[in-house]
Design a protein around this nucleic acid. Sequence first.
DNA 1: CTTTATTTTAATCAAATGATTAAAAGATTT
DNA 2: AAATCTTTTAATCATTTGATTAAAATAAAG
Lengths: 206, 206
Amino acid sequence: MEMTKKKEIKTDLSTEEKIKEAARKVFTQKGYAATRTRDIAEEAGINLALLNYYFRSKEKLFELVIMEKMHLLLGKIAPILMDEETSIEQKVEQVAAHYIDTLLANPDIPLFVLGEIKNNPDKFANLISTKTKIVDSAFFRQLGERRPDVNPLHFIFNMLGLIVFPFIGKPLLQLITGVSSEEVIVIMNERKKLTKIWFKAMLEAE
Amino acid sequence: MEMTKKKEIKTDLSTEEKIKEAARKVFTQKGYAATRTRDIAEEAGINLALLNYYFRSKEKLFELVIMEKMHLLLGKIAPILMDEETSIEQKVEQVAAHYIDTLLANPDIPLFVLGEIKNNPDKFANLISTKTKIVDSAFFRQLGERRPDVNPLHFIFNMLGLIVFPFIGKPLLQLITGVSSEEVIVIMNERKKLTKIWFKAMLEAE
DNA sequence: CTTTATTTTAATCAAATGATTAAAAGATTT
DNA sequence: AAATCTTTTAATCATTTGATTAAAATAAAG
């Protein structure tokens, strides 16, 4: 099992990694329920039985993928929000830049992760609440200091809404505006700088 | 088939309506792929075969439900955005108030509709592009006049992000903040007024 | 009341789907 | 080269699932 890694480093991926890679693609694209293990096997170019040989079940393979994507979505953001040295605006700028780049490369993730969380909130309860305590973050405290009259959660929603929603609403927006995928990508990139400006304006709004 | 309606007016819903109502609930909650026709039958308290007797198939029943929810999500918004007499701020205020009320009553709709659109964009292509031409709306034009330097699509994303995202991100936010469902509802209601203020601030931001 | 049309049910089908098994193929060790 | 361990395959299972059917129950019409 260890030996294969050696061989595959030169050529292509190991069987195990091929399956994981296919699972990432199919699961994030279609969600757990709509995914057939046969789809994954075909995408990976392997026999269906191998999937159950390496990962015991569809469920197990899925947990691997969703946890991976979850960390991709939450891992980098926590340290940014915890930083006591940076201002609110700097944090928003960093989060926006990081998120938009990540989501341009993985546009299916938000709908995938948020959808699966909604279906099964309990499964993720322990994983997150311990690590990513946003309510105890410097960001949360700074927001409360700057705008004591507004619940800081509003600004959390606002930040994520400005950054993440475009990726979730993209298919609908393309439907009702007819704008091309290329144009949307341009727009997403523009938002890396604009989000900070808008957030600052909301923070100071009366 | 017409006669049943008479009877059911006094007592409860007709069989057909019971199935539709159950389908609305199960489909919006779990999505098309995760929904079993048996779930719907059980929820409706009817024999499974009746589902296929009244609606030819799962697919047909689903189309009924998704189109209904789609109109709920888009129907009222179009006339607001087309109105030549109201200002940008007034439009945003109206859209926010309407949407937040609608979504408080139907919190599953955004994730449901956006998810299914992503899975099957073609299916909805004709339905929407003809009716709801946002790019030709007064709103779109007004945005272009007020901020010629910013693509109006940004502000469409911003408005929908501020209004709709909280409902999509709610499960995740509750996970990483631990706020109660009641508190979230309070917050959603606060946003009916706040969204307009924030949007105005973004519109004037430099 | 009898006949006809409509609605509902139980039983069943065929296809899809997650998973397993036994054997073959390939690699590693002795 | 033989023996042992690992990986892969084809065939098959058992359930699940959308859908159908023939018959029973109920309602409407004559």
